Amino acid sequence: MTKTSSNAALAQARIAIISANWHTDVVHQARDAAALRLQQLGAAPARIHQVEVPGAFEIPLMAQKLAASGKFDAVIGCAVIVNGGIYHHEFVSAAVVDGLMRVQLDTGVPVFSVALTPHNFQPSEDLLGFFHAHFVKKGEEAADSCAQTLAAHAAVDALLDEAVPA
């Protein structure tokens, strides 16, 4: 996949970035980094839409609504799922990732997850710097994956549209 084919696929793509409102100081690092990287790769800023939901658990339903609308070419979900010591995070993270995969398979719209469960997340000053940087990196990686996936789908769509010689 060339950079040019990724850029061409992004030029007309409409992308939703859903972010959870828990720990927005960290989550918005991924959201903003993904949006910036998508623009650097050729996405039009007006075609990148940000949607907020209360928490990570609400991301799959919103992703389904956006993907099923037929108005979005890709969806990225961003959240911090905190390990609070009661194993709740394991159920939530599994539900979120499974839900996002289901949305992707049910709608045919690529869905990307930056819903992360940092080990022993503590919002201390020292660790916040680490988590901010980590979420920037993960947002950029999600944007890169989004661009590459949209280009791959465009290439396969073109292949499928080709006439097959008899």
Results as ranks from 00 to 15, higher is better:
S69E: 10
C78S: 12
A46G: 13
L116V: 13
A143I: 03
T107Q: 04
H89P: 08
V75K: 04
P45I: 10
P123T: 11
L36T: 10
G70E: 11
S113E: 05
N120V: 07
S145H: 10
F135M: 09
D73L: 03
V80K: 06
D126E: 15
G42Q: 10
T107K: 03
V136F: 00
D73Y: 02
G70D: 09
H49C: 11
V53H: 04
A143G: 09
A33F: 08
F131N: 02
V92P: 01
L61E: 07
V80H: 03
N120F: 10
F130G: 07
K65N: 09
S93W: 02
A142R: 01
R102K: 13
A74I: 09
D144P: 01
F72L: 11
A142I: 01
S93E: 13
N83I: 08
Y87F: 14
D73E: 12
I48P: 01
D32Y: 08
M62D: 07
G139H: 02
F131A: 02
V109H: 00
V114L: 02
A63K: 05
H88C: 08
D144S: 12
A74W: 04
E90L: 13
H119S: 05
R37W: 05
A133H: 06
A115F: 03
F112I: 08
K138T: 05
V82Y: 11
P123Q: 14
A43C: 14
G129Y: 00
P123F: 07
Q122P: 05
V80A: 07
Q29F: 01
H132D: 10
Q40C: 08
F135L: 03
H132S: 08
S124V: 12
F72W: 08
A33L: 07
Q122A: 14
A79I: 06
L116P: 02
L41E: 03
Y87I: 09
C78L: 10
V26S: 06
A34Q: 09
D25E: 15
G55T: 06
A33E: 05
S19R: 11
A33K: 00
A143F: 03
Q39A: 13
Q29L: 04
L61G: 09
H134V: 04
Q64E: 12
E58I: 00
A44D: 15
V75Q: 07
M62V: 09
R47W: 03
L61Y: 06
R47E: 14
A147C: 08
L100M: 15
E141T: 09
A63H: 11
Q40M: 08
K65V: 08
R31Q: 14
N120P: 01
F72N: 11
S124P: 01
V51A: 05
N83F: 05
I59C: 12
I18G: 10
L61A: 13
G99W: 00
D126Y: 04
E125W: 00
G42E: 10
K65T: 11
Q40Y: 04
L116R: 07
H28R: 15
A46Q: 15
A34W: 04
K138Y: 09
A30N: 06
A67K: 03
E125I: 02
W22M: 12
I76E: 09
V97N: 14
R37M: 11
R47H: 14
T149V: 10
V53P: 04
V114W: 00
G108A: 07
S93P: 08
P60R: 04
T24Y: 02
Q50C: 10
A34V: 11
W22A: 13
L61T: 12
R31D: 06
V92W: 00
D32Q: 12
L36E: 13
W22R: 13
A115G: 09
